[in-house]
Nucleic acid binder design. Structure first.
Lengths: 171, 171, 171, 171
DNA sequence: CGGTAAGCGAGACGGTACGTCTTGTCTTATT
DNA sequence: AATAAGACAAGACGTACCGTCTCGCTTACCG
């Protein structure tokens, strides 16, 4: 985590991790088969603190809180770590699967826990595909992360919140 | 392109490109400073054929056409090429900038050329942030590409189309 | 022994021995401090059958028997074992000392038991240095073993026998 | 050479050579496929100075000179180098072949150039096998080197000389 | 007879070298 | 002057073996 946070994807090497951890490469490979596995486990310890799922009863309010929390968590070191994760996933479908199953899933579930009740309450059209919405929201996040197309600040958070809530339409 | 299409991000090396091209590495580096630059130039030749911008006068129809075209273009070889691009961008902010400026921009402009008139016609709320919508749509695409979270087929295309047009609300 | 006989010096590892013996490395190292010690002990069990010391009363005849016996013992598996021993000895003076004291000594004594009486009987010049002769004979053997310069067959045995007995000169 | 001379077989590593030579391991492996090849080439440069072949007309005298020269060359650093060579040869038949062809051959030829004329002159029995004698002499040398069974000093040189000339018998 | 200590298997560990791979720079000779 | 050919330093990769270590388990001896 330290190395990924300090130096980003390029500076993260198994040799480096082994040295920093005061551990032999042999041991590293015994427990984790790849850089991605190491990172995932490191993150899961770090991010074990359950993702907050606001439940104010209002989709707009819930989303706003969730998105702002998310945005607030994305300081530069964290962004470097996530970019390292994305690098691994983009390069190798196997790593992608691991990231998906062991990392993305959790956050997707949290957001789904906001969206589904909202749809049931009628705040989103009944036909709305939650999966599509999740892709849109998290896609926006990773897109900005990977391609550095813009900040992931409060404005961004509010923009996404606004777009999603706009789907409530005239309802 | 051939190599990236055949072998994906991992199998794409400068040595490999030089050999396949019957060119020395020296020459490769003289003209392009990095793998990303090589790929970008290769893609731009390939994808020079201007992106079609439908203009049927209906946001829903335009979007549907655009998304289906996009989806249709994403065959497995193309996906491997794009993943190679994402790998480079995620690993290095400088590469990210290049991908952004020389590749993403074009497609963003095409979609913007659909969304902006639609907003002007009142098919989207006047306050709608086009940039946010672009991030959502392309984010969804790259998210699925990078993390292999699902197919980029017609269902996906229609799902995104539906979500965006849902924002037109009761209008 | 099995491993050394099958795979030779390169394939002989402490891990391998431990596994084949159904024993933990811990135990291996408790009883023997090095590969060389393990091999030496294994060989001493194997080769415990006393070295035959012919005593026909004729140097030529005794030597011939001894050399032919020696040659006959040197089948390929045995050669691999001896090469493993030589590898250890050449690499490390401490191992060399152990091989010398616990292995070479025995065979040297056997040959000396042939040469000394012969010298006393006048079949070798009185000034002959037995040690030098031992070095010449066994040197020839190990030289061929280590550098694979030629077979250790009956021709070789007879050649050495002939050379040594030639020293009896016109006597 | 420096490393082999200073630290002997155990301390000689490809990594170490690369570092000391200010060269990358890649380059090392491009030119030499193994430690043995590196050593052989290093030695051949070093030892390029032709081996002196005395030709006094007397076998005893020639041998004495040759053996004393040989003995004098075997200072501790040289012995460490030669033990490194023997370690490689003993461990691997392929390395053994290389050592034989590129190193041992030269010295064998030099000694043969002494022995053959002597035999022709009648100083050795006509039936004497030169090859056997070469094995005996050099075997004695390497035996002492590998197993550290005794010094390779002038006494040793004279002992071997004496043994060989003893074969001239009553002539 | 029940408690304790010694020896054991299992195997993790830090360390080090291995041999391979890719990167980006460079030199040389050719055209 | 641009090129191909390819050597090169740098350094990460993933593997192998070494010798040490810690853990429980099982015997066998002793109180």
């Amino acid at each position: 985590m330290e190395i990924a946070a300090e130096r980003g994807p390029e500076g993260l090497t198994m040799d480096g991790v082994a040295e920093r951890a005061g551990v032999s490469k042999e041991t590293l490979y015994r427990w984790w088969r790849s850089k991605t596995e190491v990172l995932l486990e490191a993150i899961s310890e770090y991010g074990a603190q359950a993702v907050q799922v606001p439940a104010t009863g209002s989709l707009t309010r819930d989303l706003e809180i969730f998105m702002r929390d998310t945005s607030a968590a994305l300081d530069p070191p964290t962004r470097r770590i996530l970019r390292a994760l994305a690098t691994g996933a983009a390069a190798d479908l196997d790593a992608a699967r691991q990231v998906r199953d062991q990392f993305l899933t959790r956050r997707r579930a949290a957001l789904a826990a906001i969206l589904e009740p909202a749809r049931d309450r009628g705040e989103l059209p009944a036909a709305t595909s939650i999966v599509t919405l999740l892709d849109l929201v998290f896609g926006s996040l990773w897109y900005r992360l990977v391609f550095d197309t813009g900040p992931l600040d409060q404005d961004w958070a509010d923009g996404v919140t606004g777009a999603i809530t706009a789907m409530t339409g005239g309802v």
